[in-house]
C-alpha cells in the first residue's frame, strides 16, 4: 500500500471533481451560446441545471480542500495544487454564473429578431470557450505553456468587446427602437468578456500550481 493512501485518494478526488466542474462549465457555456445564436430555449434551461451542479461541485471541492488543509497539512506541490484549486473553483463558479446570466437574457428576447448579425459576440464566445477549455486542460495536464497562453488570448476578447460596444452605440443612435435589444446584447458581451477574465485567472493559478510563482503577485513567490 502506498504511503498516505487516504490522503492520495482525497487529493485525487479533488482533482477529479475539479475536472468534472471544468467539463460541466465548458458544456454550460456552449449551451448558452447555442441558446443565443440558435434561439434555443431548451439549451438555456439546461444551463440553469448545469449552473446548479457547478455550484454544488464548488461547494464540495471547497470543503474537501479546507478539510485537507486542516487535517493533512499538504506541503510543496500538494499545497500549491490544493490552494490553486481553492482559487480556481471560485473563478469557475463565476463563469458558471455568467453562463446562466447569458442564458437568462437569451430567454428575454422571446421571438424578437436580432437587428443585426452577432458576428463579434459569437467570435468572443468561441474564443472564451477555448480559453476555459485551455484553463481546465492546463490544470489537468500541468501544461505551463498552455496556462500562460490564456492571458495573451484575453486581449483579443477585450478588443472584440470594445468593437461590440462601439457597434451597439452606433446601432442605438441609428435605430433608437432597438435600444432594449442592444442593451441586452451589450450585457451578454460583457458577460463573455468577464468569462475571459476568469479564464485568465484560472490560467494564472495553474501557473502558480506548476511553478510556485503567481504571475500577478511576485511577492507571494515561494
Amino acid at each position: 500500500m502506498p504511503r498516505r493512501a487516504n490522503y492520495e485518494r482525497e487529493l485525487q478526488d479533488i482533482f477529479d471533481k475539479l475536472v468534472l466542474m471544468g467539463r460541466t462549465i465548458e458544456t454550460a457555456i456552449e449551451k448558452c451560446v447555442k441558446a443565443l445564436t440558435e434561439r434555443n430555449e431548451e439549451a438555456a434551461q439546461e444551463v440553469f441545471e448545469e449552473d446548479k451542479q457547478i455550484d454544488r461541485l464548488e461547494s464540495e471541492i471547497e470543503q474537501a480542500c479546507l478539510r485537507l488543509l486542516v487535517m493533512e497539512h499538504p506541503m510543496a506541490t500538494d499545497f500549491r495544487e490544493v490552494s490553486a484549486a481553492l482559487k480556481v473553483i471560485t473563478d469557475l463558479e463565476r463563469i458558471g454564473d455568467q453562463a446562466r446570466d447569458i442564458a437568462e437574457i437569451t430567454l428575454q428576447f422571446n421571438t424578437e429578431k436580432y437587428t443585426k448579425r452577432l458576428d463579434n459576440i459569437s467570435q468572443m464566445a468561441i474564443i472564451v470557450i477555448q480559453m476555459v477549455k485551455d484553463g481546465v486542460q492546463a490544470y489537468i495536464s500541468r501544461d505551463l505553456e498552455l496556462a500562460r497562453r490564456i492571458s495573451a488570448t484575453d486581449d483579443k476578447v477585450d478588443n472584440l468587446f470594445n468593437t461590440v460596444i462601439n457597434d451597439l452605440i452606433e446601432q442605438m443612435k441609428q435605430k433608437p427602437g432597438s435600444a432594449k435589444q442592444a442593451v441586452r446584447l451589450l450585457m451578454i458581451a460583457k458577460y463573455f468578456e468577464r468569462i475571459g477574465d476568469h479564464a485568465t485567472n484560472v490560467g494564472e493559478w495553474v501557473e502558480y500550481a506548476i511553478t510556485g510563482t503567481h504571475p500577478k503577485n511576485e511577492g507571494m513567490n515561494m
Binding site: 502506498p2 504511503r3 498516505r4 490522503y7 499538504p74 506541503m75 510543496a76 506541490t77 500538494d78 499545497f79 500549491r80 511553478t211 510556485g212 515561494m222
Partner: peptide, 20 residues
C-alpha cells in the same frame, strides 16, 4: 518558505509531502 512550498529536489518533496 521555498522548501515547504516549492522545493527544488524531488527527495525533499517526497519527504515533506509524506511520500518518502
Amino acid at each position: 518558505k521555498k522548501i515547504f512550498t516549492n522545493p527544488s529536489k524531488k527527495e525533499t518533496e517526497n519527504y515533506i509531502t509524506g511520500r518518502f
